[in-house]
């Protein structure tokens, strides 16, 4: 019953948004008579026909991006989680490196790319590393937030039971923080996809980002821009739904939310 209701709700929202887009597209083209109407907001049927005209090509490019985004995401998530644990274990380490983790995110890909290319000498490795580089930060910050939000009284209790550090982490801190970890993962997943799309544009010949840039700047074949954009957004959504599904498996309902969720 619940899934039916959420499904219905999703359907209503999506249809509402689509109707709004369709109306806006009509308004731009017919009422405002904007010469760039098709470039600003196209009719849905145009996007759909552009997609089915090149479905095989677009999907295979999407597959390429998904592969690199997925690998980069896993790498970034592992590194991010490790950093968060390290920072929780030592306040000194946290104070030392947290500001620099933030700084690391300020170096734009254009400045970073030559360094990563130089290090790995391979476009495909660089694609994974850059996706990981952008993923690790939200995972680290979210998980650290979780690790630090544990009720002090519980930790005191553990101390009074003479629990060692390993026990404290595996029995209290980590299980408590799992929902926070998932929050970070949920944010990071679409970002990893977005990063992989960005890296597609660097110097590759495939990937959905390549299609976007090619249709934006390659001249002519602009029709594929919209399906490519929507496809990349859908990959991002899919990645988040996947994490949400994983979360449902890994986190018990009692932990995740209060009764208000029912």
């Amino acid at each position: 019953m619940k899934t039916f209701k959420t499904g219905l709700s999703t359907g209503v929202w999506i249809c509402g948004a689509l109707a709004l887009i369709q109306f806006a597209a009509w308004f731009l083209a017919e009422v405002v008579r904007d010469p760039l109407a098709g470039k600003r907001l196209p009719y849905l049927q145009d996007v759909i026909s552009a997609f089915f005209g090149n479905a095989g090509y677009l999907l295979s490019q999407a597959g390429v991006t998904m592969r690199y985004a997925g690998l980069g995401f896993l790498l970034g998530a592992v590194v991010g989680a490790a950093l968060a644990l390290l920072m929780r274990a030592s306040g000194l380490v946290e104070r030392m490196i947290l500001p620099y983790l933030l700084l690391s995110q300020m170096i734009p890909i254009i400045g970073l790319a030559p360094i990563i290319f130089g290090l790995f000498k391979s476009l495909n490795a660089a694609r994974i590393i850059i996706a990981a580089y952008i993923t690790f930060f939200p995972v680290s910050v979210s998980l650290l937030g979780g690790l630090k939000s544990v009720d002090e009284s519980c930790i005191d209790l553990m101390h009074s039971c003479a629990a060692n550090a390993w026990q404290r982490y595996t029995k209290l801190l980590i299980p408590w923080s799992v929902p926070y970890l998932f929050t970070g993962l949920k944010i990071a997943a679409p970002v990893a996809v977005s990063a992989a799309v960005l890296v597609d544009t660097l110097s590759s010949r495939d990937g959905i980002g390549y299609v976007i840039v090619l249709t934006l700047y390659g001249g002519g074949t602009t029709g594929q821009f919209w399906p490519a954009l929507i496809l990349s957004a859908l990959i991002g959504l899919g990645s988040m739904l996947l994490i949400t599904a994983l979360e449902k498996i890994c986190v018990s309902p009692g932990m995740k939310s209060g009764k208000g969720d029912e």
Partner: peptide, 9 residues
């Protein structure tokens, strides 16, 4: 979905 649109697009 909106958030997943890559910034470069």
């Amino acid at each position: 979905i909106v958030n997943a649109i890559p910034i470069i697009a």
